[in-house]
Design a protein around this nucleic acid. Structure first.
Lengths: 123, 123
DNA sequence: ATCCTGTTTTGACCACTGTCAAGATAGACG
DNA sequence: CGTCTATCTTGACAGTGGTCAAAACAGGAT
């Protein structure tokens, strides 16, 4: 598991906020991939549950509180995993997921608005 | 112009970060809508250019630096506008766009990781 | 008034994505 | 070893989204 994740060059380190300087096409593609992973209500809730748990959480805890089938949950978890937002491990009968906060911090920093933009610096 | 935008209850105010408490379905739907608007490389670059300009920017400045047609640019700008991320105004021949930073700040705060999650608080 | 330029809308096409049913896999327990 | 449970993968389908060509619209210039 956790075999394939997209390359995460920005992870852990800081990045130039989107609102500070125009994003180069490569950075835009990487950022868009993460946002795409978060662009679904079910995935966003899953991500929130995992991240707010602050610890590993069992898949069996999800299947009850969503109105979609178990395979669908599994599919969404894979998307989050391939986006580098979570990771998982099988332990005995159950599979446990946990958040990778660096990735969340990275996108949060990407979206950060640096102080008050100065119109005098415009283009 | 700027006629239709999705309802933005969280704008301006703060919100509970995704990693602090599980998102309710309604909040997840609203957040996912914003992320969906940002989940395209072209839109992310457009958003970045507009936000980093710190001032109004003319559509005519875009059409050169993208490999897509003008109608496609227009389409992406509309998506950003309907997500409440930018707004625009026609002034004479040209149309000008500017960023709505509150919205960016809102999603950035939504993604913020609150200090170090305490495992003792888990579930 | 007429044309010309810049921007948006409409319509259509293709690719991608979310969803579920069915089958496959991993591990526990007799 | 066989079976049962929990999870994931595969295959298929419908709905959505990105793209462009063509047409419509807005405003300035001649």
């Amino acid at each position: 598991m956790s075999k394939q994740q997209i390359s995460v060059q920005g992870s852990g380190g800081c990045c130039t906020p989107l609102a500070a300087a125009p994003l180069d096409p490569a950075g835009a593609t990487e950022g868009a991939a993460v946002f795409k992973a978060l662009a679904d209500p079910v995935r966003l809730r899953l991500m929130s549950i995992i991240a707010s748990a602050g610890a590993e959480i069992c898949v069996c805890d999800f299947t009850g509180q969503f109105e979609v089938s178990a395979p669908t949950i599994s599919h969404h978890l894979r998307v989050l995993r391939e986006a580098g937002l979570v990771d998982c491990e099988r332990r005995g009968t159950w599979v446990y997921y946990w958040a990778l906060p660096e990735r969340l911090e990275w996108v949060s920093a990407l979206l950060a608005v640096p102080a008050a933009p100065d119109p005098a610096l415009a283009l």
